[in-house]
Design a protein around this nucleic acid. Structure first.
Lengths: 333, 333
DNA sequence: CTGTTAGCGCTTTCAC
DNA sequence: GTGAAAGCGCTAACAG
């Protein structure tokens, strides 16, 4: 049925030139006489020749493939980032190998090894947790790694993200301005730098500006999902909080619904500001106010940065901070 | 900093054996004396040797990589399928190259070519649209392709999905049993087999059983997203429909909110049954009733099927139909 | 059980 | 502008 694999050698023979010349035209090398080029192209067409990327990768030591490590592709936040990455990758002719890490450190190490084994030209890392072993592995490999939507708190590696501290600060500013004196901070584990280091600091800074003393009891750590939010609602309703900054949309959605099920009126009795402005913020009733984070762009910019790193181009800024905005909807006054 | 790439040859020399032997121990070939094996493993450890998957791929003609073509990874339905695929792929030591097609036929052809170029061992295809050129390309390649969560209406290619016709039929049965005489059918383009061929047929069959005449005006085609649902709400409210079967959760969510914004009470005045039972069905108020589709499992089973195909194992059934269930929540009586 | 020997299909000096 | 030849790092007969 299907004919034998046809190789560069077949094309060379048919066109009466050498493999080197075929290789040149395939790769757009200018040092080929137009006549020759055309002749070769005709044969390529006629034989329906397709270069073998694996052989090419072995010879050139470039795979035109990059690895993408993320916690879970079903999380809309990471899916959006991945989409941004993929679109730019496509533009630069790179393919993407996807790896779900479930934020498991050992798994990340394995996965990274595996990616190196596959000779990826670069990797984009997403995830809120990063430990020293992984950081070491990243640094020791000569494969460039960039962080997307995540920050290495040691700032040792290139990254693209928003200013989480300031975004949180502005959110809490707004909540204070609305008259709230007791504001909950809801997030995933504060072991994660994005929460414990950046967001929490922004939260504290806003409190200080508002002359409100920080109360540890108003810091709620849980998982990033809807059901956790629902379950958290009773705890929060039982506290004296009248507003919350929430670090994740699914979590915020759960909290909102949970609170309403307990007959707490939002925003009249309780205000909520969420963090990622994914589509579900619009689906909720009342609609959730949120920090607006350019997820797609974060992925896109990270990929663009990676291409520069892979080509050893000059980099102006290794730690890129993208602008965010505040989207006020119905869950705030 | 980083030492030279160390190869199988280095290991062989250091261990005083041949490359072939090293290759054997690396690949777990049993024909190696335990002593030798251990000696080689020690050297591998000491030299921190990592096999080069590209070279291996060239020599063995296997890349241990598969391609996954889907419309858009930010669509939760496809993201869940992708997760199922990835988990099983990992189990069988395959990696996944992700390709977003945006349901664009030309792009799909390109992307598929590219995947073949990269020598993937198999491909999983998701998408509701498939035209003859693509089907031909799939069949002509000797790379196995399986459909996941989608059906090739010609049934020519292996696939894994639920029985969309029956799921729709059962949904509409329920709506009829609740007393509705005018039931809208809302989906994406009925050019897509899943809608025009399977779901619509199930819809018609249920109507016939309920002695309701099919009314073309109650068939609404639109895009698979929240805003389209919102916009559709006024049209549907203006029709005489008192219930709707909707082929997509985001769309159903938009319709639900749109209807409520028009003061239509759900489910008292209007019932809705959606299709994918993604998490947003639970987030909506009232919560959406939905066909429960095993998305993760569909991906997982498709990947398992692909592994069999790649190994030329016997296949009992090429077109696997997974069970679905009906999840009744608050958008139905 | 182990070693030898060809390649896999392509890129890349280095000559001419 | 073009060709010859040497690998890239590994697998897979084939001997022995």
């Amino acid at each position: 049925m299907e004919k034998q694999t046809i190789t560069i050698y077949d094309v060379a023979r048919e066109a009466g030139v050498s493999m080197a010349t075929v290789s040149r035209v395939v790769n757009g090398n200018p040092n080929v006489k137009p006549d020759t080029r055309q002749k070769v192209n005709e044969v390529i067409e006629r034989l329906d020749y397709h270069p073998n990327a694996v052989a090419r990768g072995l010879a050139s030591k470039k795979s035109t493939t990059i690895g993408v490590i993320l916690p879970d592709i079903t999380n809309p936040f990471f899916a959006s980032l991945a989409r941004g990455i993929d679109d730019i990758a496509e533009m630069y002719k790179y393919n993407i190998i996807l790896e779900n890490s479930d934020e498991n450190v050992n798994r990340k190490l394995e996965v990274f090894e595996n990616l190196l084994t596959k000779q990826v030209d670069g990797v984009i890392y997403m995830g809120n947790v990063i430990d020293d072993r992984l950081r070491e592995a990243f640094k020791n490999s000569r494969t460039p790694v960039v962080f997307a939507g995540s920050i290495d708190d040691k700032q040792a590696l290139p990254s693209v993200s928003i200013d989480y501290k300031m975004a949180t600060e502005e959110s809490v500013d707004k909540l204070i301005k609305d008259g709230n004196k007791h504001i909950a901070f809801v997030s995933g584990s504060i072991e994660e730098p994005v929460n414990g280091k950046y967001r929490l600091e922004g939260y504290k800074k806003a409190l200080k500006k508002g002359d409100i003393t920080y109360n540890k009891k108003l810091v709620f750590e849980t998982d990033y999902n809807y059901d956790s939010g629902v379950m958290l609602a009773s705890d929060i309703a039982a506290s004296d909080a009248t507003a919350a900054f929430v670090g994740n949309d699914s979590l915020a959605a759960g909290l909102l619904n949970g609170l309403q099920d307990l007959d707490v009126k939002v925003p009249e009795e309780f205000e909520i500001i969420s963090s990622n402005n994914t589509e579900i913020t619009k689906m909720m009733r009342p609609q959730l106010s949120s920090v607006g984070q350019p997820m797609y762009d974060t992925g896109a910019v990270a990929m663009r940065l990676l291409t520069k790193l892979m080509n050893n181009e000059e980099i102006e800024e290794r730690n890129i901070v993208l602008p965010f905005d505040m989207v006020f909807r119905q869950s705030t006054k």
